[in-house]
Design a protein around this nucleic acid. Structure first.
Lengths: 343, 343
DNA sequence: CCGAAACCTGGGAGCGCTCCCAGAACGTCA
DNA sequence: TGACGTTCTGGGAGCGCTCCCAGGTTTCGG
């Protein structure tokens, strides 16, 4: 008769606020006040409520709080992931750790969303629908209008990594420009004269910023900026780009690779061509992933602190949610060079 | 006067269901039915509602649905992360991708929680408080009672990776035993006779299962199982373990390393000792991380599909939530050997 | 032509909280 | 003594939805 079997009856959710009130001998209102740390509660009542809560193992119903109050006590982390590979895992995981670390202790949940192509409108509807108090966006490509849209809808938004198409939306980023510049100058200071770079994709700010920094560093060292190849943050693309550079100019004696993950590929190509690292070609990466130190030879690289990036984004968002004013619109995190064997 | 500044007034959340009803010229109930895809709605009404929804950009208030209905339309991914480094990033990121892929299209949100020490009770209260419909748990250490606790509370729970201390709770895992066995047999088939292993931590099932599999494979090849060292899934520990093995038995001609990430460290140690890979010592890893193919030499390894692990966990949980019965309690995902240069 | 079964619809009672308001209890000062 | 604060408390109206129930409309077999 019935086509669909009824799912098993949901357990009666835990204790309700009213039961706590009864157990503590006070009213719902008072319990609510205690939970939310409001003033104007006698210490006696406060104490009784705390005990009742502990005894009953009460945990407030988040849905009800959200519905009744205005806040959702919840922020979203949106990863715009076109094609699902992009901007490799370690970056994302690091940011996530940072976000979580910063959220620790605060009663704020983190919901994770990935924007698939097509879902765009759904995503915006959802986010603007009052389900979350604020949004963290990472891994933007091209001129993604998402942050702009969210910000225009009045939803507090912080972007991780400089967004190309969202002027005015607050962001936090590593100081890619200066990091890359330092790499170029360091290679020059080593006496290298044919210094190439493998840059990131042209549609990502991180790619362009590191390329600009390298160019600036090269200019300062009075070196030409002709040896540029592009990759897409995969080892394969790094290998291919290195191949291209070597064929264009076999006398290359150094290369700044705009991401460790690509540097791994470049190292393979160099090895295949019988080039010794660092004797024949010095290599400097960027990111300082875990794999940088275990590469052969260990990779000299520009370290960016992705966990700190996550923390800072979260701090910035939470500060805005708390009503703080005159917050810095943009934050740049310093990078540092880690010297290992490859340069 | 006022110590705390009031946060800026929250925007009036979007359209409400009632407005959609009015716009479509039907009742709230009918709109609700359309949204939830229930039968017994005339196609005319259905059409009108859909149009109204699109026109008004309506997005149902999740909190209200949760409160009124029984489901939260939300599952939690709990990462028990004691110490914050553990089980490195790539694993976690892969699982996450899988979970998300499986969730795509379903109207289910994912909340991420990390169990810090101390928070344990809070976490359990929260999860059992009806805020989520089910829980995915990964990265369990030792005899973590969390899954048991959750399952006992009647909360549908699926564990990723065989849990040591939670008999009876459904889990999904890679077939670590058979994968490791295959590795051992492969090395033996290559004619290697002094085959060592670098195992994972003793308090993790994944470590023990791979060790058991290796032992079984060795026995089948009539080889001794004396060369065992332990690491903790870091490159450093892999390097140290290799060092130990080499000093115990310099004639080692093969090693099965229970994780690529440790294999990287082992490779460094081998290199430092002037051992050629694979000529002097063959190396087989486990996991097939991205870095396995870019190691020097490229690592032969046992591939486990972590994304599939995430997908399968999610599928299993969702099936249970949908009320399906007689679901398999445990699921093992096959592994496969990827032959590259190191063995 | 009548009754039953299948469809379709609207009304309204909550879900568990927050937050506003009214008022009690206890001052304190003219 | 009364008028007025300040501190504390409880009552109750929603928040926006789901889901039950009652009832209306159509179809179809006897």
């Amino acid at each position: 008769m019935t086509d669909a079997v009824d799912p098993p009856k949901a357990r009666r959710p835990n204790t309700r606020l009213e039961e706590v009130a009864r157990a503590a001998g006070v009213s719902k209102s008072t319990v609510s006040r205690v939970i939310n740390g409001e003033p104007y509660v006698s210490s006696k009542a406060r104490e009784a409520v705390h005990q009742a809560i502990t005894r009953l193992g009460y945990s407030p119903n988040q849905a009800a709080r959200t519905l009744a109050g205005s806040r959702a006590n919840c922020i979203a982390l949106v990863v715009s992931e076109q094609g699902s590979r992009v901007l490799a895992d370690p970056f994302f995981a690091g940011v996530l750790r940072g976000v979580h670390a910063e959220l620790a202790g605060k009663r704020v949940q983190l919901v994770l969303m990935m924007s698939k192509e097509g879902d765009e409108q759904d995503l915006v509807n959802y986010l603007c629908g009052g389900h979350v108090d604020g949004v963290l966006v990472i891994s933007l490509h091209g001129q993604d209008p998402l942050p702009r849209t969210l910000a225009d809808a009045g939803l507090p938004t912080v972007v991780g990594g400089r967004p190309l198409g969202a002027g005015g939306v607050p962001y936090v980023d590593s100081d890619n420009f200066n990091g890359a510049m330092e790499a170029a100058r360091y290679l020059a200071s080593l006496g290298r004269r044919r210094v190439a770079t493998i840059a990131g994709p042209r549609d990502m700010a991180v790619g362009m910023d590191r390329l600009s920094g390298w160019k600036r560093g090269m200019s300062q060292a009075r070196l030409p900026v002709d040896l540029v190849a592009y990759g897409d943050f995969t080892p394969e693309s790094g290998a291919a780009a290195m191949e291209e550079l070597l064929s264009r100019s076999p006398d290359i004696d150094a290369v700044f690779v705009a991401a460790d993950i690509m540097a791994l590929g470049a190292l393979q190509t160099l090895h295949a061509h019988g080039k010794r690292v660092p004797e024949d070609v010095a290599v400097v990466g960027f990111d300082d992933l875990m794999i940088a130190s275990t590469a052969v030879p260990p990779l000299t690289t520009i370290r960016q602190d992705v966990e700190q990036l996550g923390r800072t984004m979260t701090w910035r968002l939470m500060a805005e949610l708390a009503g703080e004013e005159n917050l810095p619109p943009f934050l740049l995190l310093p990078t540092s060079m880690v010297k290992r064997g490859s340069a």
